[in-house]
Design a protein around this nucleic acid. Sequence first.
DNA 1: GCGTCGATCTAC
DNA 2: TAGATCGACGCG
Length: 174
Amino acid sequence: MKPVVLDPSFFKRDVLEVAPGLIGKIIVRKFENGEIKRYRITETEAYRGEEDLACHASKGRTQRTEVMYHQGGKIYVYLIYGMYWMLNLVTGEPDHPCAVLIRGIEGFSGPGKVGRELRLDKTFYGEDVAPSKRIWIESDGYEPDIWVSSRIGVEYAGTEWTEKPWRFIAKENK
DNA sequence: GCGTCGATCTAC
DNA sequence: TAGATCGACGCG
C-alpha cells in the first residue's frame, strides 16, 4: 500500500487511542541537508493529563508543559539527564494535556536513542507534525499485533500510575 | 540563588 | 552500579 501522510485529526483523539495507533506507523524525518529518512515505530507510551502523576502536566501548566495544552499534532521535546531529547507527540483537544512518548523505532530501541538518531534539539519544541516541517507520520497500512505493558521509569508516580498498561510494543519486536 | 532529580544510556 | 550532564522545579 502506498504510504499516506496521517491527517492532523489522527492526533486529536484520546492518547490511549493514539499511542497504540502509532505502532507500525512510519515516522519521517527531513534533515537539515534535505535528506529524508523513514523509521517504523515499534514502541510508544501514553501520558494522560494532569491527574496522571507520571505525566509532566501533573505539575500544571508551565513553560515546559505548555505545548501539551495545545491541540494534538504538535511536538513536545524535553531534555532528560542533561543529554537525551525525548520525542513526544501531543494528542487530544486543547486543555487536555496528553502526549505519546516515542520509545522505539526500527533499529533503535529506547527513547534516548530515538532522539539521538533523529537529531532532536530544543528547536523542535511546539513544531507541527507536518510534511512542510521536519517530522511527520505516514501509514502504509501495516498494522502489527501489539503487546501491552506498564510504563518504564515512572516509579516516582506511585504504583497506581506505574501499573497502568499504557506502554505499547509491536509484538514481533518483542 | 541553590539543591535536587529526572519518561536514559553506557561503560566499568 | 555509578557517572555523564543540565534544565525545570521547589524552596527560601
